[in-house]
Design a protein around this nucleic acid. Structure first.
Lengths: 166, 166
DNA sequence: GTTGATGCAAACTATTTGCAGGCAG
DNA sequence: CTGCCTGCAAATAGTTTGCATCAAC
């Protein structure tokens, strides 16, 4: 077997191309961040990412984490969203298909869904308003199947609802 | 004509009832806040409200503004939302009909819309996931009719898009 | 060697909170 | 007169930034 050049995962290559196109530099920190981002199975926030890296011995400063996440969002490898709390949630973009979210107010479960008919209806609405859509954000808050059975404290739920920044 | 008791606008009465039901007090500050909130034609934020009051000689502290807005949200007279920036937007609730928003990334115009078919489709989706919806948040970001004609700086738009916390 | 990147700490922004004095009920 | 309310200032939390140093190209 002949020795081959070490292969970078596709996302790292995409990031590299993006960086080069803007004369930005491919640093070790940036590569490790991309790797960690794509190692995250679900949504995560800046601090979780920072801590996950620290636990693996890669102490990358919070500032760099934020700066790099910003670049990743710009290059389309990461999606940034807000679920009504005061911090940003991120997720690796593994395919081009976007999705919306159902968010459980009791257990914080995040259920992703995609519905072509919903997308189409939105476009129809935009057409009627002569509005050119570029991005959209759609979250439904409530109780997931598992939490509907549980006896939950209504006042806690009500408070959580009223505090939603959405 | 006989002298009648001074009549409070409906929203103040509703607020009063809400406060009494919780043994909270109807203070001058609270009444002036409700009045100002319902005097705002569109969306506003905590700071705008605070400044609008200050300009009218009613210097109510920011802390009280926030505390009262919170009460108004709990009592259903005010809706709180986030449009992808880092602060909360509020609006007076003048009818029970909720609406979603189209938000222009160029001029910040906020266009409200309500579509029964969209609402129905959301409920259908929730049913399929056995999810019990309690609230939802739906914003479409893009360019309003007026701004589609203007020559806008694409890179500014792209940056704005990428910074959206949605 | 340039130019951009990093880490640190300080700055920032929006919002919340503790506390002492004040006012509604 | 009691307990909630207010203003103030300090505290928070998440995120951004200035600056000196360092590394990619």
């Amino acid at each position: 077997m002949r020795k081959t050049k070490i292969e970078r995962p596709e996302e790292q290559q995409r990031f590299e191309t993006f960086l080069r196109s803007r004369q930005l530099k491919l640093t070790g920190e940036r590569l490790e961040l991309v790797e960690e981002v794509f190692g995250q199975p679900h949504h995560f926030d800046a601090d979780q990412l920072h801590m996950a890296l620290k636990q693996k011995g890669k102490a990358i400063s919070r500032a760099t984490v934020y700066r790099t996440l910003d670049l990743l969002v710009q290059c389309g490898l990461v999606r940034k969203s807000s679920f009504g709390d005061q911090y940003a949630h991120y997720e690796a973009v593994r395919s081009d298909e976007h999705h919306d979210h159902l968010i459980c107010l009791n257990c914080d479960a995040i259920i992703e869904f995609f519905r072509a008919d919903l997308e189409a209806l939105q476009e129809q609405i935009c057409r009627e308003f002569n509005f050119k859509p570029m991005h959209h954000s759609h979250q439904i808050f409530g109780l997931c199947q598992a939490c509907q059975g549980k006896t939950t404290d209504d006042s806690v739920l009500a408070h959580r609802l009223s505090q939603l920044n959405t």
